[in-house]
Simulated scan of single mutants.
Amino acid sequence: MPPGESPRHRQEKAHLLKRMDRKTGKWGTIHPRYRLLEALYGFTKYRERNMAELDRWRSMYGNVVKAQKKTLEKAVNYKKKLNDIEELIYENEILCKAIVSNAMSFYGISQSDLDSHIAEAKKAGRLADRISPSQTLKHFVRDWADEGSKERDDAFPCILSTLTSLKENSSADMPLKILLPGSGVGRLGTEVASLGSFEVTLNEWSMYMNIGYRYITSLNPSSPLTMHPFIDGLSHHATTNDLLRQITAPNVSPNLNVLLIEGDFTTAFNGQGEHFDIIVTHFFIDTARNPMSYFDTIHKLLKPGGKWMNLGPLLYGTGPFVQLSLDEVVAVVEEMGFEFEDIGNECGALTFPDKKVRWTEAEYGFNGKALTKNAYKAQVWVARKL
């Protein structure tokens, strides 16, 4: 059976397209079809939105007095830098159009559907999202390019070695069912699948990430994508060449046996209680408006004795209902029916001397050549559902 054409892939594709039907559920901003169209709108208008920002930069440059401009042009040819960025915006647009074309084919979206959505957005005065398409390109770097190896190497070895140990200590004859919510553009799923003996399921809410992942998995390994992901911001570059540099991805072929299930983690798996042997939350639990809902869902989806592995920070977003410190997370999770298990020194030192939670430094910044570094003391644990 060809990769990606298993019964579970075909079944999920049918369910996905049903959920995408406008007549399914209540139409509005959280409807999956609406969110898909918004993402397609964002990628479609990549050039327009980024050219508007470039025009703003050019306008700001106009405030520099003539003598200062003369020095700037003689020393660094500042206008040329802005002109080079414009050319690369057009090159990135080619990739964005390919992402849109692939998504429209995969989800069955017609050009008239998209045109109608864009017309309604313009009528309502709603601009296309400029940030999310650019962030998707940066996630390609983090997950699928050579330049993202540092960020992957900070986190993946701990996760993969722990999963290998869990498999070795399992008495199950069948592949272990493992779920990775908040999967972004999907590299960790391919790495887990490469271990063997795991049936890997990804889950992601963001339609920008989902259509990015769909595009990555559609590529011929001999024809990787090229992009210039850092031209949307002028801060923290050591050289102009760093700003303008080209990135190629993917550096390995995605494993097409991995299954992506789109949607809200707390509802996408309704009816699949006690289905998974392992859930891995990688840079995920702090994305919740209500972390308790995530904890409840993890508990519900795990089989008795199933394991929950976490690696990530506690960087709460805008308007969370609950913001727990690490010791409070541990206490709540234990109260809910989990027992923490020690995973050894490979994943870092103990955060608390009397708790089985460890920490490891993990970068998160997408651009390894930037003049800034963002790193977390990512918290690592394995908890067993009692």
Rank of each mutant, 00 (worst) to 15 (best):
Ala14Ser: 14
Glu274Leu: 12
Glu53Trp: 08
Ser134Ala: 15
Leu127Ala: 12
Asn50Lys: 08
Lys303Ser: 11
Ile89Met: 07
Arg289Val: 15
Pro313Leu: 01
Phe43Lys: 00
Tyr208Gln: 01
Ser218Ala: 12
Ser110Pro: 10
Val65Cys: 09
Arg8Ser: 15
Gly148Arg: 00
Ser105Asn: 14
Tyr208His: 11
Trp308Glu: 02
Lys369Ala: 13
Leu95Ser: 02
Glu12Gln: 09
Phe321Asp: 15
Gly312Arg: 04
Ala67Gly: 12
Ser170Ala: 11
Gln11Thr: 15
Phe295Gly: 02
Leu301Glu: 04
Arg130Pro: 07
Arg130Gln: 07
Leu16Met: 10
Phe340Gly: 06
Lys123Cys: 11
Met60Ile: 14
Met207Thr: 04
Leu311His: 05
Val141Phe: 03
Leu17Cys: 08
Gln323Asn: 11
Val100Phe: 05
Lys69Ala: 04
Val200Ile: 12
Leu259Gly: 01
Trp144Gly: 01
Asn203His: 07
Ala331Cys: 05
Lys81Cys: 12
Trp57Glu: 13
Ala378Arg: 02
Lys81Leu: 14
Gly306Lys: 02
Leu17His: 13
Gly189Arg: 02
Glu151Trp: 02
Lys66Glu: 12
Phe230Gln: 04
Gly368Asn: 14
Thr190Tyr: 06
Ala378His: 06
Ala383Cys: 02
Arg33Thr: 11
Arg47Ile: 07
Gly186Ile: 03
Ala370Cys: 13
His15Ser: 12
Pro250Lys: 05
Thr287Ile: 14
Ile178Leu: 13
Ser161Gly: 08
His236Ser: 08
Ala249Pro: 03
Gln11Leu: 15
Ala331Asn: 07
Leu127Thr: 10
Leu315Tyr: 10
Gln111Glu: 15
Glu363Pro: 03
Ile94Val: 15
Gln323Ser: 15
Thr164Ser: 12
Ala249Phe: 02
Lys385Glu: 07
Ala14Tyr: 09
Ile285Phe: 07
Ile216Gly: 01
Phe265Glu: 00
Lys13Val: 05
Ile131Thr: 11
Met174Glu: 13
Lys69Gln: 14
Asn374Leu: 15
Lys26His: 13
Gln68Tyr: 12
Ser132Ala: 08
Lys369Tyr: 10
Leu219His: 06
Ala124Asp: 06
Lys74Ala: 09
Leu88Asn: 04
Trp381Gly: 04
Val330Ile: 15
Pro320Cys: 10
Glu91Ser: 07
Met104Trp: 05
Met336Cys: 06
Pro291Gln: 06
Met336Glu: 04
Glu328Trp: 01
Tyr294Thr: 10
Ala155Gly: 09
Leu54Arg: 03
His15Leu: 15
Thr297Ser: 10
Ser197Asn: 15
Gln246His: 08
Val100Ala: 01
